[in-house]
Amino acid sequence: MFYVLPRFNYYRPNSLDEVLKLINELENYKILAGGTDLLIDMRIKRYTPRNIVDINRINELQYIREDNEYIRIGSLTRLQDIIESNIIREKLPLLYNAVYNMASWQIRNRATIGGNLCNASPAADTAPPLMVYNAKLVVSSINGSREISILDFFKGPRETDLRNNELLVEIKIPKPHIHGYSYRKIGRRNAFTLSIVAIATYVEIENNIFRDVRIALNSVAPKPVRAWSVEEYLKNKRIDREEIYKASELVVKDISPISDVRASADYRRKLSIILIRETLFEASKITG
């Protein structure tokens, strides 16, 4: 054995109620969903939780449902089930594209959407699409449930708004209006790679005017971010090549990239500008 996992007590509750009771009582615990982040973090001793609460038996957290207002995804839904869902492919194409480009088949068969969000990596790939869809996160504890906008959920690298006794149970996405969209993920290679920058761009257009513009990026700040400055600049303007060029430069106000093993800060800044342009062109169906 090259890497040995630290010792822990293992709990395998059978219902959501049991999970909530357990995490209310236990100190120093970690939830185990797909384990594709957690087990590696434990191996490198970033985390050494005394207790592991395995939620894989909680089938009630695995679903993709649609009602009049929302598309609802259970937190334990596997990434592979997300890309195999017609609801997601047809109604939430940005999420479909993002998840399609995540990790590998083997990982997507285990990794969950809840794990990707709660791990709160600045490079989390489900974040940009969910941020442009203004998703809400439903979290529960023994005291009840509350909703957090995904725009307030991430606090910094590996930090979220979750309280110690709370579990993420559902991702609730308001059904989007008719919109144009474009997604790009740039990594060090084409497949099976973490993003240097990933971007989700969403536009609502009426009479050649941007009625709504929403853009989110990951890996360019301590947490995934919206490009508010670009969005504000373009809202209610006519679709115009020059304006898109001007707007794209504004993204540097919204991001604060660092240099790391994947790319330099400067490269990320330049890439962000170019990707904003390209995705806006594609989303509004004009050629650059």
Binding site: G35, T36, L39, I40, D54, Q106, I107, N109, R110
Partner: peptide, 9 residues
């Protein structure tokens, strides 16, 4: 379904 056995307890 294919999975990595290094990432499963």
């Amino acid at each position: 379904k294919p999975v990595y056995s290094c990432m499963v307890l």
